[in-house]
Amino acid sequence: MAMVQPRNLQYRVWAARIIMILLLCLVMFPFLMIISVSFRTGNFATGSLIPDNPSLEHWAMVLGFEYTTADGTVIKPTFPVLTWLWNSLKVSFTTSALILMLSTTGAYAFARLRFRFKNHLLTSMMILQMFPAVLALVAFHAFFNKLGGVVPWLGLNTHSALVMSYLGGITMHIWLIKGYFESIDVALEESAYIDGATPWQAFRHILLPLSVPILAVVFVLSFIGVIGEYPIASVLLQGVDQLTLAVGMKQFLYAQNYLWGDFAAAAILTGMPITVVFLMAQRYLVNGLTAGGVKG
């Protein structure tokens, strides 16, 4: 590129570099700190970034082992972090699978079929998406409280209630899949119709196999969204063994029971995989988030 360059370019680059590095120090500070804290001895220890006498007690606690310190005292695990992780995975997996089923069929209809109110439905879905579930927490609580009186496995403090309550958040996914379907040539399905296929067969045997990439992306996106969801889970779940990670993690930092070191280890153990998955899916997530705003 033949850009006209100012003469003092070198100084500017170095200035930018220094600013970037200072800024990155600020940005990375919490992460470096939490890694350091997770190896310190005890929950109130202070010290430098590299721990003076590193200890694995917090990591043992997170993995559910008892830990014997040098002077022989046994530290027992405080919270069932692995149970929470399992709960989170279970809920996120089920929800994402269901969301995938709901949004794929919906997107197919919106992309390919003709029916009345189609555009009205699309617009109203767009508007409704702007009312987050956190505004209706009272309704969710009352709703599952009452439903639980009739169908116990759908009451408060059950994972099935939590999964159900997440099934409303599918608008973004529908848009994403719809956009992908529209980019696939209709000719393939039309030739199937000529051979006598029903719309369901065209969808199931032609469109779906072609859309596996976007389905994977939607699955991952919804998985990340659900595993980090806090408001609804905090209202619906109560028992310690029922909690998901998002709700359980704050239990470490109550003023009367402050477990900073244990929290650090748990945060790294559970945060790492989610972060890695997120970084891999990040490109699509941003596309999806802006798709709604741009396509309107």
């Binding site: 089923m101 069929t105 919906g106 505004l135 309704a139 997440y166 409303g168 599918i170």
Partner: peptide, 18 residues
């Protein structure tokens, strides 16, 4: 039939709570 399942989710867990 294709739209109903996803609309059901939206009706039950967005519109109804509101």
């Amino acid at each position: 039939r294709y739209v109903y399942p996803c609309l059901l989710g939206i009706m039950m867990f967005i519109v109804f709570p509101l």
